[in-house]
Nucleic acid binder design. Structure first.
Lengths: 243, 243
DNA sequence: CATCATCCGTGCGCTTGCGCACACATAAAC
DNA sequence: GTTTATGTGTGCGCAAGCGCACGGATGATG
């Protein structure tokens, strides 16, 4: 069903899912960019000018409170895009988009996005479906924050990363994870220590290696699977070859 | 700017914001329905057939976990609609929509919705903008669940209700609120008791009366205002007369 | 090789919220 | 008017997570 494009833009699943004609049309508007760790793609409330389709990079959507504490509401990698507000009409959101794992992405200017979106084709369909899948992710984060332990959430967070990464190794300190999860660094250290003791992960100074994915899934809360299944339900028929 | 329609469908702000021609076109497809307290509009994962535009009713979006505990991710009243998944492409969501405050709504069948949505007019714009505003609400709920106290969240929750209601009186037990907030009934009782002591609210057996809205806003976390401001930013220009 | 910054382990007191249990009040039902 | 159901107050003990503090370890820098 899905067409093989002649470009590594295919690494982004949403782009890869486009029919040949739509792909050819938007291809010239896609500019490859390299994103560095910690780079801020969008600042909260700031007018957006481009939408990003990550290929190897992972971008984190963060809320920053008045007192400076932070919490992640969602993550996008080659399964999605960053910059939903551009086609939803708001042009901006109250969240910040930060590069959590350095890598590449394709950048598409706002004008090209609007042109293609307004045609009402598969491009629009896929973008809207992805938006719904992101809503599920955010919703699940909300209930997860309320009802589950730090350790369960850490497992979930590691699994999401694992899905978006090409490797088992994750460059990430406990401190950064704490900022994402909205908890203390010590809390992450304790949870990670426990997971290491169980043999699910290993880590040394800023590098976490996932040793046993299945066990991690069992140690995570149901939230991980709900979001994953919902993504597959919404976009699976477009992204047939994936996974 | 906004046209005065000849119908009480105007009580729903999104419908009221439509230009005359679009309103006339969708009007015959709107069926007034009465919604009773506790009624389940949509069940999690169940195929949707209608979208709802509340006028006096308030609908709560709930997640139900495997162990039966619940948490609210958002609320819609005459400021919005229920059934986003219908035009986003998913046809369903993992959440349940429950009537939290009895009242009326307009029901629009899926087919009519798709017809009008695909025209790419103001209707589509407004629906997408509302979706973004709901995403903000859900996102803020996520960080609020992580970072703020039960009392702060209770204030926020009361304020949202107050905005959607036509009165200061809220028919709601501590137990139900606890289900919404995803906390214990006792926790709500303690927080509510404190707010009553401060003179912000009064309550007796299932009825809560808001006494001092300004003070409630000061006692709430920033989350309330962020969501409200974002809604106004996204939809304010359409809903000029509102507030 | 020595210094320094960064990352992680650990301990302690404290607060918030949980789970449970039960008493008491007020409305509804008969 | 008595019974019954429902809604709220209160009091435990307990666990999770917070804020703070400090010490040790590891890797980068010069």
């Amino acid at each position: 069903m899905s067409v093989k494009h002649t470009d590594d833009a295919v690494m982004n699943h949403l782009i890869a899912a486009l029919p040949e004609d739509e792909f050819i049309r938007i291809k010239p508007t896609l500019e490859p960019v390299s994103l560095t760790l910690g780079e801020v793609i969008y600042e909260s409330g700031q007018q957006l000018n481009n939408i990003y389709f990550p290929t190897t990079a992972i971008i984190s959507l963060l809320y920053i409170m008045e007192n400076g504490s932070t919490a992640e509401i969602g993550m996008s990698g080659n399964d999605g895009l960053v910059g939903i507000a551009l086609y939803m009409g708001g042009s901006t959101t109250p969240s910040r988009a930060v590069v959590q794992s350095a890598g590449n992405a394709f950048r598409m200017p706002s004008s090209a996005l609007h042109d293609e979106f307004s045609l009402g084709g598969v491009f629009q369909k896929i973008l809207l479906r992805y938006t719904q899948s992101l809503m599920t992710q955010i919703s699940q984060t909300a209930v997860c924050n309320r009802l589950h332990s730090v350790e369960q959430q850490l497992c979930r967070w590691l699994l999401i990363n694992h899905d978006l990464l090409q490797t088992n190794k994750l460059i990430m300190t406990h401190d950064l994870i704490a900022n994402m999860l909205g908890v203390r660094r010590e809390g992450v250290s304790i949870a990670a220590g426990h997971l290491q003791q169980l043999g699910l992960i290993k880590y040394v100074r800023g590098t976490i290696t996932m040793m046993n994915r299945d066990a991690l899934e069992r140690a995570a809360c149901e939230c991980y699977r709900v979001v994953k299944d919902e993504y597959d339900r919404l976009l699976g028929k477009y992204i047939s070859k994936n996974r």
